[in-house]
Computed example of a mutant assay.
Amino acid sequence: MMTVSPNTEPAIRVRGLEKSYGKLEVLRGVDFDVGRGSIFALLGSNGAGKTTIVRILATLLKADAGSAGVNGFDVATKPSDVRASFSLTGQFAAVDEILSGRENLVLVARLRHVKDPDAVADDLLRRFSLTEAAPRRVSTYSGGMRRRLDIAMSLIGDPPVIFLDEPTTGLDPEARVEVWETVRGLAGRGTTVLLTTQYLEEAEQLADRIAILHRGRIIANGTLAELKQLLPPAKVEYVEKQPSLEDVFFAIVGDPGSDNPRTTSERK
């Protein structure tokens, strides 16, 4: 039987992670921890290396250097234990449009050899507010409903960790808010969430901690309040304006198209 590591250890630990494709350095020494039951946002633009990190943590890709662990298990030496510890939801909903919502859930529960798959499906349908839509074909679902169903499917078997790789890509604002509420609910039940996103507002709304990934390196890591402190104090004229996460992001990363992030001293 797989043993779960003590709760004092972080749910995810990454140290010195490197990955290159030929001469292209995608990851250049990445370090971060994710506390249990928290939402951790990995924020960066396209090509920053977010999905590469997720693929390494999911044992789908081998790192060139460094180490990574999920739920106390090393991804290189104990990949089977790692795979038993997480679920992965990619950028596009992996649901069968021909089947109904309930049939999708029952099918996955049976494939994972979960006891009483019908009861598991009904419980998840209630949790994700999909009971009324359960008999309908998924092809009739809205984007937000499909994504909620996709996340519900990933929770079958109660994994302690879930990777959400840009889960709101292509969704309209209303559907995005639906997914945000779903993610908050996951953390509220004790699930650890690693969220990759390029949407600044998404990280600001959801994350307990935010790491900014730029050109293969983590260049800032902290709570939203800590990241805001990287900017000079707000100037009070008529009304004090607190910096948004977008202000912090571009102040750290630099102007679009710039190869070098601005240092703290350069921002003062």
Score class of each variant (00 low, 15 high):
residue 1 M to V: 14
residue 2 M to R: 11
residue 4 V to L: 15
residue 4 V to G: 00
residue 4 V to Y: 11
residue 5 S to P: 00
residue 9 E to S: 10
residue 10 P to C: 10
residue 10 P to K: 05
residue 12 I to Q: 09
residue 17 L to Q: 08
residue 18 E to G: 06
residue 19 K to S: 10
residue 22 G to C: 07
residue 24 L to Y: 11
residue 24 L to C: 09
residue 27 L to N: 06
residue 32 F to D: 08
residue 33 D to N: 13
residue 36 R to I: 09
residue 45 S to Y: 07
residue 47 G to N: 04
residue 48 A to M: 09
residue 51 T to A: 01
residue 54 V to R: 01
residue 57 L to P: 01
residue 62 K to T: 14
residue 66 G to C: 10
residue 66 G to L: 06
residue 71 N to Y: 10
residue 73 F to S: 14
residue 83 R to A: 09
residue 85 S to T: 03
residue 85 S to D: 04
residue 86 F to Y: 15
residue 87 S to T: 11
residue 88 L to R: 07
residue 89 T to M: 13
residue 92 F to M: 12
residue 94 A to I: 05
residue 96 D to E: 13
residue 97 E to A: 14
residue 98 I to T: 14
residue 102 R to G: 02
residue 105 L to M: 10
residue 113 H to G: 00
residue 115 K to P: 04
residue 117 P to C: 08
residue 117 P to I: 10
residue 135 P to C: 06
residue 136 R to D: 12
residue 146 R to M: 11
residue 151 I to G: 02
residue 155 L to K: 00
residue 158 D to V: 02
residue 161 V to I: 14
residue 163 F to N: 05
residue 164 L to F: 04
residue 164 L to T: 08
residue 167 P to G: 04
residue 171 L to S: 03
residue 176 R to E: 02
residue 189 R to L: 12
residue 189 R to C: 09
residue 193 V to E: 08
residue 202 E to M: 02
residue 207 A to G: 05
residue 210 I to F: 10
residue 214 H to D: 15
residue 220 A to I: 08
residue 229 Q to R: 15
residue 229 Q to S: 15
residue 232 P to N: 11
residue 234 A to E: 15
residue 244 S to A: 15
residue 247 D to W: 03
residue 247 D to G: 03
residue 252 I to W: 00
residue 254 G to H: 05
residue 259 D to H: 12
residue 261 P to F: 08
residue 265 S to W: 09
